[in-house]
Amino acid sequence: MPETISVQDLVEVYSDGTKAVDGISFEVNEGEFFGFLGPNGAGKSTTIKVLTTLLRKTAGKISVAGFDIEKHPEEIRRVIGVQSQETVVDPDLTGRENMMLEGHLHQMSGDGLKKRVDELLTLVGIADVADKRAGHYSGGMKKRLDLASALVHKPKLLFLDEPTTGLDPQSRAAIWGYLSKLNKEEGITIFLTTQYMEEADKLCERLYIIDQGKIVASGTPESLKREVGADSITMTLENSGVATQTKEKAKEVLGAIQGISKVIESDAGITVYARNASLIIADIVRAFDSNKIRLTSVNFASPTLDDVFLQHTGRRIRTEELNTKQTSFARFGARRRPVRQ
């Protein structure tokens, strides 16, 4: 299978000196559903911006759809569809007008364009509101319109930068549905970035896990999880935030238990990996009890992509994300309350 994206040693340094992408290489094959999984600030969006000709690379060799990114950006723009992380629709135009404009800018016109737009509006389920202004749409509808407008010109290659971030579970599931369909039925190559491991796991045939501008692991979701090789047990200790002594003691106790292959400490607590975790939980609880270490929670799970990330980086993808979101949400709520009364 010919590769449709080829990236060799891409480096992207911003003018303030920040190294957003630090020497990554990968290939995406035609027809593949390919993903970048990583936390905020990992370099995912930067990579997409370089690949979609918006940002000039600092160093590296890149071709997209067979064209060199530096020499033939116009050719690339003709065959790619892009949905950026922020939902971008013109609020003053109707859904249909937004899509028609996108078609016009791709030199499409006439009945062919009209038909294509109708088809896509139906596909993403907004045909009934197509002639209302997009500014009145819900967040999920705007996102779907944005996705549909990236598809007007039948791109061979679709770039999606966190297509479901901030969406409710229902809209997310709907978008997953269209994406699978586009990839399987229309053979569109999809390059997706996400910070949701569930999304990466469900959609992507092949994944690169990226952190701080570097690729930390790659493979199919199954092979990556298999690499973890064991179930995980995550526990939080009473007062764990305060007493490092307790944590040290706990790690010592865990180290002595037979069958535990790895102990990792993260802001979510202590995670251990073991092949037969269900049997070992009892050993852990007993050992902690006799050492007077008090547990507040114990979780047991089959390996996920988050465990892959944790094993490679010592951090979890999710916990940080949720925390920052909650605080900003709380602040927003507090600011608005007096206005509402």
Partner: peptide
């Protein structure tokens, strides 16, 4: 700031 310019710039406009 809305990203509309970038959205246009990835097309052959």
């Amino acid at each position: 700031n809305s990203g509309m310019l970038e959205k246009m710039l990835v097309t052959p406009v």
